[in-house]
Structure formats: C-alpha cells, structure tokens
C-alpha cells in the first residue's frame, strides 16, 4: 500500500505547487509586461540622458481620465506636443479636489501603442505616488520625460494616458488595519 501513499503525496505536492504557481503568475505577468510592453505598462522615474538629440520628431498626445465616480478636476497643461527623441521635455498636470472632504487619489499611467511604452522614459513624475488633497485644494505637478532614440522606426506618435483613481477608502481601511 506504500505505492498508494507515494502517489497521494506526490499529487498533493503538485496541488500545493500549482496553487503557489497561481500566485507566481502575478510577478511573472509583471515581468512579461515589462519586456513586451503588454498593456502599455510603464515604470516609475528613471534616469536617462542622451547625447544625440533631434534626429526624429515624435508627436505625443496626453489624455486624462477620471475613473468611475472620481469627482476631482484632473487635466494636463497641454493636450499635445511635438518632441525630439533624446530631448528632455517638461509639462505639468493639475489636480483639484472639488469636494468638501479630504481625499487621496492616485493616477495610473499607460502608454500606447504598448510596444512604445518601454521607450517612454519619465525622469520625474507622480506615477505610483498618492496625492492627498484637502477640500478645494489644488496642486500642479511637473512631469519630465524623454523619448528613447531607440524607439522603433514605425512609431511616429505616442499617447500617454493617466487615469485618476479615488483610493481614499482603500487607504482608510489599510490605516485602520495597521
């Protein structure tokens, strides 16, 4: 009967292993996205400087979206600009808490087309940072970016979209549980 015990313990281990594999898919997916630019995921601030400036001109479009039910005013100071690859660019976004309650928000970036995402380097940004604003408070946050000269030749325009999420409730529950 020990052969049965052996089978059962092997299969039980396989089950536990596959359960863990399910969770391992989360970091695997993130790495995979970073390599392929799947979903236009971009990384946080990176330091990049290039010497060869001005070979190609790229059109950049900026979009801002409020997630469902997010009442803040959220916009960029321009909707489009033409930039040269390798050149440092500066622009800014305005956040205004239009409600009468203090709120916490977070803007999530996405670049399209997806395969251009890894060539869009932000040297200074508010990505992955939480914004706390008092009622009626407004701030302007700069965004510095540079387009990698290695950007594939078939891409002549990129779009950077930010979606603003209300994370007040999540942060409150997190603090309460701490």
């Amino acid at each position: 009967m020990s052969s049965i015990k052996k089978s059962v313990s092997k299969l039980f281990l396989a089950t536990v292993g596959m359960f863990l594999f399910g969770f391992a898919l989360v970091p695997i997916y993130d790495v995979f996205c970073e390599i392929t630019g799947l979903n236009g995921k971009v990384t946080g601030p990176t330091f990049s400087e290039y010497e060869d400036i001005g070979n190609r001109e790229i059109k950049i479009t900026f979009t801002t979206t409020n997630n469902n039910g997010m009442p803040w005013f959220f916009d960029s100071d321009r909707s489009q600009m033409k930039v040269k690859t390798g050149e440092q660019n500066l622009m800014s976004y305005v956040f205004t808490n239009t409600t009468d309650k203090p709120m916490i928000a977070q803007a999530i970036p996405s670049v399209s087309p997806g395969k251009g995402a890894q060539y869009f380097h932000k040297t200074e940004c508010f990505c992955f940072e939480q914004q706390y604003l008092e009622p009626g408070e407004s701030i302007s946050i700069p965004l510095k970016f540079v387009i990698d000269p290695d950007l594939p030749a078939d891409i002549s325009s990129l779009a950077l979209g930010y979606t603003l999420f209300d994370i007040t409730k999540d942060q409150m529950t997190k603090q309460a549980s701490n």
Binding site: T15, V16, M18, F19, L20, F21, G22, L25, K174, S177
Partner: peptide, 21 residues
C-alpha cells in the same frame, strides 16, 4: 490537479482584493 489550484488562487486573490485591501 494542474488548474483547479490556480482557480483557487484566483478567487483567493479576489477575496483579498475585496476584504484585505
């Protein structure tokens, strides 16, 4: 055996998103 644990993982992640922040 290969995939039911992955489903269990997926619903566990949902549970954590809903209740544990």
């Amino acid at each position: 055996i290969a995939v039911m644990p992955v489903l269990a993982g997926a619903v566990t992640m949902m549970l954590m998103d809903i209740h544990f922040g």
